[in-house]
């Protein structure tokens, strides 16, 4: 198990290295950093000086090493647009995105799995057909439309929930949390539904089809023939056997929830990393984009790693295979 984890860890670092190199290329060669920072009236001599100070004269390998070394210390340079260290910007914006993504994933999993189990077991009931019909809407409507519709219904018409922002936040050390205030929690509801709805329907449909598959297997028939209760069959045996693909997809979806919170954050003016990224794109703020690229890949790599380890927990066969393979 340990060897399995270590091997996966090494693979993860290789991926990160490649992404960091891409980020470096983006930083160094998409536009000239000096042009981005210097104003119209900066003299040529000053430009030369900046070029030197930024270390752009050094051999390329030295530049790469420096970039990697800095990235390892979370130093991504200074944002052209905000004139602030990028890492500081991300630290400020990160918690908002992470909290939103957490709430959205929780919503997607907590509603999606039971819905999938229900529609899988009672595949012919009217409720199942109703849920499936509705879930089709969830899959096919674009996020921004759902967001706008929710704002229209619950903020504009009913005045129940705020339409933008995070509400009040409380500082826990460096972390600004909205989980601890009533207005923070209220502000979280609409964005997390908007962000999680697609994932919810995806998980529900996945669990449903996996349930249908597993319920047809011999061991479920044998479990019936042994006289086990329907509850034991459905939850102890069937649901557990559906979990491998569900964990994979859910894990990767959590990654994309965080990475693609951009749209939801824009609709709700949520002060997170996604909004920061959009601003960076609009102002060609390369350091921010490079940092965001690295951060998002780090997130995906980490989630993939966790998913792999979770597999081994759920399925003893993978545990055995992994151990014998290393």
């Amino acid at each position: 198990m340990l060897a399995f984890s270590i091997r996966r860890m090494i693979e993860a670092w290789v991926v990160m290295l490649i992404v960091a190199l891409l980020a470096f290329v983006l930083f160094r060669y998409v536009g000239n950093p000096v042009d981005q920072m210097a104003g119209q009236y900066t003299s040529l001599a000053d430009r030369e000086l900046m070029h030197k100070q930024l270390g752009l004269d050094d051999p390329i390998l030295v530049q790469i090493a420096r970039f990697l070394w800095n990235a390892l210390h979370l130093d991504f340079g200074i944002s052209y647009h905000f004139r602030e260290p990028v890492s500081q910007l991300l630290m400020k914006r990160g918690p908002a995105t992470l909290e939103l993504s957490f709430a959205a994933s929780l919503f997607a999993i907590a509603v999606g799995i039971p819905l999938g189990v229900f529609t899988g077991i009672y595949k012919d009931s009217l409720w199942s057909k109703f849920f499936l019909g509705v879930s089709l809407i969830g899959v096919s409507l674009p996020t921004f439309l759902i967001g706008v519709l929710l704002i229209f219904a619950f903020s504009v018409e009913l005045h129940w929930l705020p339409s933008y922002g995070r509400g009040d936040t409380v500082a826990l050390g460096l972390w600004q949390t909205g989980f601890l205030t009533a207005s923070g929690l209220r502000a979280l509801i609409l964005p997390s539904i908007t962000l999680g709805l697609f994932q919810l329907t995806l998980i529900a449909r996945l669990v449903r089809s996996e349930m249908l598959e597993v319920l047809r297997t011999d061991f479920i028939r044998f479990a019936r023939a042994r006289g086990l209760s329907e509850r034991a069959i459905n939850f102890n045996h069937a649901l557990k056997n559906t979990l491998i693909p569900v964990i994979t997809i859910t894990g990767l979806q959590i990654g994309s929830i965080i990475a693609f919170a951009v749209i939801t954050e824009t609709v709700f003016q949520w002060p997170g990393m996604g909004l920061l990224f959009i601003t960076a794109v609009q102002s060609a703020d390369i350091p921010v984009m490079a940092a965001y690229l690295i951060l998002v890949s780090l997130m995906f790599v980490t989630i993939n790693f966790i998913v792999d380890v979770l597999y081994a927990f759920v399925d003893p066969r993978i545990r055995l295979h992994a151990m014998s393979a290393t």
Partner: peptide, 10 residues
């Protein structure tokens, strides 16, 4: 089929 009669995860 004894190979498929038992729940592989229990």
């Amino acid at each position: 089929d004894p190979l498929t009669s038992l729940d592989p995860l229990a």
